[in-house]
C-alpha cells in the first residue's frame, strides 16, 4: 500500500494551470524525487501535499487519508520544509525547536528537541540566536525542525537550496539516514545530480506535467544517458 497516492492532480491559480494532471505513488521508506526546472509545478505539488493549497481537481491520499476531507489527520503525520522558510530570528536555535515541539504535546518536547539538535548538529551555536546563523546553519536548523518529529512523510522542497557543497552534503546524508529509519521522503529539486544520488524513484515534471517516471538507473538505461540531467534533456526535447 503506497504512503502517497496522487491521481490526476490539477491546480489552477486563476487562469494559470500550475499543475495539469499529475499521477504518482510513493512507497513506505522510499525517497521520491520530483524534479524539473523552475516554474515546472514542483513547489505547487508539494504545497498541495502539505495541505497548504487546495486542489482544483484530482485526488490525493496520504496514508489512506483524503487530503480534502481529512487535512488535519494528514498534518499529524507529515512534516514540510519549504524552500524559502524562515526560522524565528529572535529565538535561539534551541528555543525555536522547543517552540515547535510544544505543538506536539509537552511529553514529547524533550525527545524531539534532542533529536532536532542532533540533526541540526550546530554544536554550541544551538544556544545562539537564529539571527546570527549563516544560511547553511539556518537550513540545518530547519531540517532538524522538519525531521525531529519523526514524521511518516517528510516533504522537503529544495532541501539544499543555496547551500555550499559541505552543507548540502551533510543535509543529503541526514535525508538518507532519515529514510533508512522508516520515514518516507518526498523531495523536490532542480539539482538533478543530487536527486540521482538520493532518490529511489523520481518523476520528471515539466510545465505542470509528469513527463517521465521511474528509478534513476532504469531511466538512464532507457534513454542511454550517463546521468539524470541528460535524461531530462532528452525527455523534454522529445
Amino acid at each position: 500500500m503506497p504512503v502517497v497516492e496522487v491521481k490526476n492532480l490539477v491546480k489552477h491559480y486563476g487562469s494559470i494551470e500550475a499543475v495539469k494532471g499529475i499521477t504518482f505513488n510513493i512507497n513506505r521508506g522510499e525517497i521520491f524525487g520530483l524534479i524539473g526546472p523552475n516554474g515546472a509545478g514542483k513547489t505547487t505539488a508539494l504545497r498541495i501535499l502539505s495541505t497548504l493549497l487546495t486542489i482544483t481537481s484530482g485526488n490525493v491520499q496520504i496514508m489512506n487519508h483524503d487530503i480534502e476531507k481529512k487535512p488535519n489527520e494528514i498534518r499529524k503525520i507529515i512534516s514540510y520544509l519549504p524552500e524559502d522558510a524562515g526560522a524565528y530570528k529572535n529565538l535561539t536555535g534551541r528555543k525555536y525547536l522547543e517552540f515547535i515541539a510544544n505543538f506536539f504535546g509537552e511529553e514529547k518536547v524533550e525527545k524531539m528537541v534532542s533529536k532536532g539538535i542532533e540533526i541540526a548538529d550546530l554544536g554550541d551555536r544551538i544556544t545562539d540566536k537564529v539571527d546570527t546563523y549563516s544560511k547553511g546553519m539556518k537550513r540545518r536548523l530547519l531540517v532538524g525542525r522538519a525531521l525531529m518529529t519523526d514524521p511518516q512523510l517528510a516533504i522537503l522542497d529544495e532541501p539544499t537550496s543555496g547551500l555550499d557543497v559541505n552543507n548540502a552534503q551533510e543535509i543529503r546524508n541526514i535525508i538518507k539516514k532519515t529514510a533508512k529509519s522508516g520515514t518516507t521522503v518526498l523531495l523536490s529539486s532542480h539539482n538533478m545530480l543530487e536527486v540521482e544520488y538520493l532518490c529511489g524513484s523520481i518523476a520528471l515534471i515539466d510545465d505542470g506535467l509528469i513527463v517521465e517516471e521511474g528509478k534513476p538507473m532504469d531511466l538512464m538505461k532507457k534513454y542511454n544517458a550517463s546521468n539524470i540531467e541528460e535524461v531530462f534533456t532528452k525527455v523534454v526535447k522529445k
Binding site: S79, Y80, P82, D84, G86
Partner: peptide
C-alpha cells in the same frame, strides 16, 4: 510574503 505561516498551517491547529 515570507511564508512564515507555513510553519503553523501544516500543524493540526
Amino acid at each position: 510574503d515570507a511564508r512564515a505561516y507555513d510553519l503553523f498551517l501544516i500543524r493540526p491547529i
